[in-house]
Simulated assay, not measured.
Amino acid sequence: MIKYDLHSHTTFSDGRLSVAELLERATEKGVDVLAITDHDTTAAIIPAKTYIDENSLNLKLISGVEISTKWHSFEIHIVGLAVNIEHPQLVALLQQQQAKRQARAEEIGKRLTKNGYEGVYERAKELAGKAQITRAHFAAALVEQGVAKNIQGVFKKFLARNKIGYVPSQWCDMATAIEAIKAAGGVSIVAHPARYQMSNKWLRKLLDEFSQAGGQAMEVAQPQQAPSERQFLGQLSQEYNLFASQGSDFHYPMPWLDLGKNLYLPKDCQGVWQFWQANEEC
């Protein structure tokens, strides 16, 4: 059986493993097909393809991206898989997203400095390296300052809504992301739908509007997940005629979350890989 992990991150966004480290770990964990889906950037894709070829890894890479979007009061992430990373429409959208991400990071830094937390922006920028600065980098910088024990604590105390470091996002709308992914020849997927802290009524509304806008799939399976949740999401994928995807949303190794771990789809779900398999046969 082919092992798919279709949601992962590198140091080109907020992952902690380099491209090489991620690919080697995927191979060690028996992953056959891996998608790299960094936040609002495809910068890892070419280095990943090069590394796989040069090291003859037995691993199929799917070119991907995770685009942040605004839908009502929610920040919804849309994963694009099997995309042409050079398509002008996708490139232009990601450039816009990156500019918004940078502006948001600068404003977060200003607000933290104003409240007495100096040097956090500069440290977050160091931690990000060549990647875009994310809130995870700010969180790591604040943990270093000893203001909280872990990243989750920082988000709760500083970066959540109505906290001193919170800056509202200005992401594109969901339809814009779907259109860019489609133009680039890819399949669009609602990422981790159970994480948005919305009622089932709102979740159904999201999936309905996503589908109406041309969305094609939703994530159903993740490593740390109750069987009942996985079954429910599988039922929703069938109800809204969406392909089902599976992915670890891997950022770094954890005891309960790793590449390829506990990833399988409920019975009767249509795997999203059928999308690019069909295109390869054409």
Rank of each mutant, 00 (worst) to 15 (best):
I2N: 11
K3D: 02
K3C: 03
Y4S: 01
D5Y: 07
H7Q: 13
S8D: 04
H9I: 02
T10R: 08
T11Y: 04
S13V: 13
D14R: 03
A20C: 03
L23R: 05
T27H: 12
G30P: 06
V31E: 08
V33Q: 03
V33W: 07
L34V: 03
L34R: 08
H39D: 00
T41L: 05
T42Y: 00
T42D: 07
A44R: 01
I45Y: 12
P47E: 03
P47K: 09
P47T: 05
T50G: 01
I52N: 05
K60W: 11
G64L: 12
S68G: 08
F74W: 13
F74K: 14
I76C: 10
I78L: 09
L81R: 11
L81Y: 12
A82Y: 11
A82I: 00
I85A: 03
H87I: 01
Q89R: 13
Q89E: 15
A92N: 14
Q96C: 10
Q96N: 14
R101W: 09
Q102A: 13
A103V: 07
R104I: 11
A105I: 12
E106K: 15
G109E: 04
G109K: 10
T113S: 14
N115L: 08
N115P: 03
Y121G: 02
R123D: 04
A124Y: 09
E126S: 02
G129A: 10
G129F: 09
K130H: 13
K130L: 10
A131N: 11
H137F: 09
F138V: 04
A139P: 10
A139F: 08
E144R: 07
E144V: 09
Q145Y: 14
Q145E: 15
G146T: 09
A148Q: 14
F155M: 12
F158K: 06
L159G: 04
I164T: 10
I164Y: 00
S169T: 08
W171T: 00
C172A: 14
A175E: 10
T176L: 00
A177L: 01
I178F: 00
I178M: 01
E179T: 13
K182W: 00
A184M: 05
S188K: 03
V190T: 07
R195K: 14
Y196L: 06
Y196T: 06
M198S: 01
M198I: 15
N200Y: 05
K201I: 11
W202Q: 14
K205E: 15
L206P: 01
D208Q: 14
D208N: 12
G214S: 07
M218H: 02
E219K: 08
E219T: 09
Q222W: 13
P223H: 05
Q224A: 13
Q231W: 09
L233M: 14
L236F: 09
S237M: 07
E239P: 06
Y240Q: 07
F243D: 00
F243W: 15
Q246T: 01
Q246H: 02
S248E: 02
D249K: 02
D249A: 03
H251K: 05
H251V: 01
L257H: 02
K261N: 03
K261E: 11
K261Q: 15
Q270T: 13
Q270L: 14
V272S: 05
W273G: 02
Q274M: 08
N279L: 14
E280T: 13
